[in-house]
Structure formats: C-alpha cells, structure tokens
Computed example of a mutant assay.
Amino acid sequence: MSEYDFIIVGAGSAGCILASRLSECGRHSVLLLEAGGKDDSFWFRLPVGYVNHYYNPASNWMYYTEAEPNLGGRKLYAPRGKVVGGSGSINAMIYVRGQPADFDDWAAAGNPGWGYADVLPYFKKLERHPGGETRWRGGSGAIGLTPLKPHAHPICADYLAACDELGLPRSDDFNGERFEGAGLYETNIDGGVRASSSRAYLRPALSRPNLRLETHCRTQRVLFDDDKRACGVTVLQNGAERTFRARKEVILAAGAVDSPKLLQLSGIGDEVRLAGLDIPTVRHLPAVGRNLQDHLCVSFYYKSSRKTLNDELGNPLGQAWAALRYAVNRSGPLSLSVNQAGGFFRGGEAARQANLQLYFNPLSYTIPKNAKAKLKPEPYSGYLICVNPCRPTSRG
C-alpha cells in the first residue's frame, strides 16, 4: 500500500502518540515513518541502558553544533534519538513539563490555546502518577511515572542539605503547584521499565490494521500538488527510493532539527539560501531553519568523601548485585535514572522566574571518545553537578 490518509514523519515522542491517536477511531489509515530501527532490544527497556545509546550511531544521530566562537571554537555534542521512540528511547527519563510561565509567554506572544491552563489538561491526560488524580497531576494516563523521592541514592540528601544551607527554596513536585526550588526528580519509568511513548502508545496501537510502521526509512522530501498542498513524501529505505501519498495530511514530527531541515530540502525556507543549494522554492518562509533555542549543559565533576553509584556500578561484583536486584524485583540502580536530584533556580536577583536548571547525579563517568562506547563510572567515589539555562537568549 502506498496511499494513506495520514503520513507521519518521525516515530519519536510526538510521532508515536500521534500515530496512536489518529488510528484510534479506525476510520483513518496512518503511515508512520522512522529513519532508525526498532526499539525492541532489552537495553531500550532497561532504564540505565541509556549508557549504551549515548554515543552509539546505530540509535543516535550524534549531532554536533557548529564551532562556537564564544566557547573557544569548540563543537558541542548534541545526541538525538535515531530509533522508534526517538530521543525518548535513549534519554535519562527525567519527567518535567516546564514552568507555567513558559506556556503563558507563548500565549502572550500571540498563540491562543497554548497558555498553561490550556495545556495542563493534556499533560494530566498523558500521565499515570502513583499519587493519583489531583489538581496538578493525572492518575490514569498511558505514561507511568516513578518519583525518585523514596529511591534516590543517599548522597542526594547531602545535595538537598547544601541547598538548604544556601537558602534556596524547596520544591516537592516540579510538576505541581511550586516549580521553583531544589528537590528530587520524577521519571517516566513504569515498574522498572522505561515508559517511552513508543512503549506506552505505539506498541499497543500497532495491532490495528489501519496503522503501519516503516523503519529504516529516511524521508528525502515532502511532495506538493499543483496548489502547493503537501500530498506525500519520498523516502530512502534500504537503498531504494519509495513514494507514499497522503489523502489528508503529511505531519512532520521529526524534531527541532530534522523537521525544519526536511522543510528546507522540500523547498520551504529562505529562497536565497535554497537557490544557493539548487533547491526550487515552493514557498518563501525565511524563518524556517532559524531561531533554534537550545540549553547547553555544563558538567562539574567532583570526588566524594561518601560512597556514590561509582562504587556500586564501577566493579563487576557491584554490577552483578545490581543485575540480581533488577532481575528479582525490578529494583536497585538499574531500575532508575542516574539523574536523581536537582532543581530550578533564578540565576540572579534580576531574574523574574527560574532560568537555570541543576542536575545532581550520584555518579561521575568518563565521556566516550569513540562511537559505540559506553559511559563508564570513574574509578573513585564521585558525583556530577550539571547546569543549563532554561531561557537562553542566544539563537541559532
């Protein structure tokens, strides 16, 4: 079959949910295209398995920025998922919606329907929080959540005590009434297994006869009819070019990098730039491919006078014990994220709201220098404190 009602490009966090919802009524045929492979390996289900995918070209696009003049000419690593589930299948599973002011700013900028009060019902619908339904949380959604509060490594208590000493506020729930402050994260982990949108939404939906998933299928361009309406796509799959037609819509869900890239390759963008690449202009939209905002992360490594996860996961005996605990009852460090504590803070007295995020990681690890390498614990007790801006002023 080469014609569908809806064609979705990208089986990432958004694409998997869209495929599930659009095929749910049974009236529409849906094609979901993914450039990577399937996420059916055990290492995608195991929460700590992300260490195998952080630097693996089989499941990661392994993007780098251009050289940054203000960072000494360095290029920064930007991992992105290349697998069913997208980055949600390879990330560290921290579950934070964002602060209400972020959404309210979208609405104030001329986007009705995107304020926090508008989007909150959909966030609640998405999640299955162990605390059940409240004003802020959902209790019956597809994405199961695990708060780290009862499970975090003991050294996280030292981090929180240090925040108290500095007079920093506390937050009991970053997705609740109070966003700003120090606290323990919660994760999209369900019963010791990664709760990606692929696992929660797409996998149950694939039994429907009106939904088809094509993997290893890299979209080359969007096709347009005489009225310049998107009507299909051409893809490259296993070395062969294929064409799929859409009766209703082509939906780009390929992420903040590849969706605008695909638009440009299809002739939608700045006509001057497209002409320089010999791409015929379908529509002159100069903002396409510009104004990317990203939150660069800086990590600080520390040796610790207390034992950390390095001591548990940095030797064969500790690894075997962790594996046994996970095999018996899905518990222990293998069932959790290594990003456990952190918070959202104001970077200065002039800040109107939290504009910095901290991660406290009870594990310090070496960064791999070659493809397919795994993150490896440092050979001493150590931890990381990472910081990134939440509201960057730079654009790319």
Score class of each variant (00 low, 15 high):
195 A>N: 11
228 K>H: 09
213 L>Q: 04
256 A>W: 03
281 T>H: 07
249 E>S: 03
207 S>W: 00
270 D>G: 12
248 K>Q: 15
287 A>Y: 09
301 Y>L: 04
272 V>N: 13
272 V>L: 14
207 S>R: 11
280 P>I: 02
225 D>Y: 06
269 G>Y: 01
190 D>P: 03
239 G>K: 09
308 T>L: 03
310 N>T: 12
283 R>T: 06
235 V>H: 11
303 K>F: 01
283 R>G: 12
196 S>M: 05
184 L>C: 09
230 A>C: 02
229 R>F: 01
195 A>W: 05
265 L>Q: 15
297 C>W: 03
284 H>E: 10
280 P>T: 03
271 E>N: 07
250 V>G: 00
285 L>T: 15
229 R>K: 15
218 R>L: 01
251 I>K: 08
187 T>M: 14
264 Q>P: 00
310 N>Q: 11
247 R>C: 03
261 K>R: 15
306 R>W: 08
307 K>C: 04
195 A>I: 07
198 S>C: 13
264 Q>L: 14
223 L>N: 09
244 F>C: 02
245 R>Y: 07
222 V>F: 05
287 A>H: 12
189 I>M: 10
254 A>L: 09
303 K>T: 14
220 Q>F: 00
236 L>T: 11
203 R>Y: 09
191 G>P: 04
278 D>Q: 07
290 R>W: 02
216 H>S: 12
209 P>M: 06
186 E>M: 15
189 I>P: 13
275 A>I: 06
288 V>E: 08
205 A>G: 09
192 G>T: 13
255 G>L: 08
283 R>H: 11
207 S>A: 14
245 R>K: 11
277 L>S: 08
241 E>F: 01
186 E>Y: 10
305 S>G: 10
264 Q>E: 14
297 C>L: 14
213 L>P: 03
197 S>C: 13
305 S>C: 05
207 S>P: 00
298 V>A: 14
184 L>I: 11
264 Q>F: 07
263 L>Q: 11
286 P>G: 05
199 R>S: 11
268 I>R: 11
242 R>S: 12
229 R>I: 14
218 R>H: 05
302 Y>V: 00
255 G>D: 07
294 D>M: 09
202 L>Q: 04
262 L>H: 12
291 N>Q: 12
258 D>C: 13
276 G>A: 07
278 D>V: 01
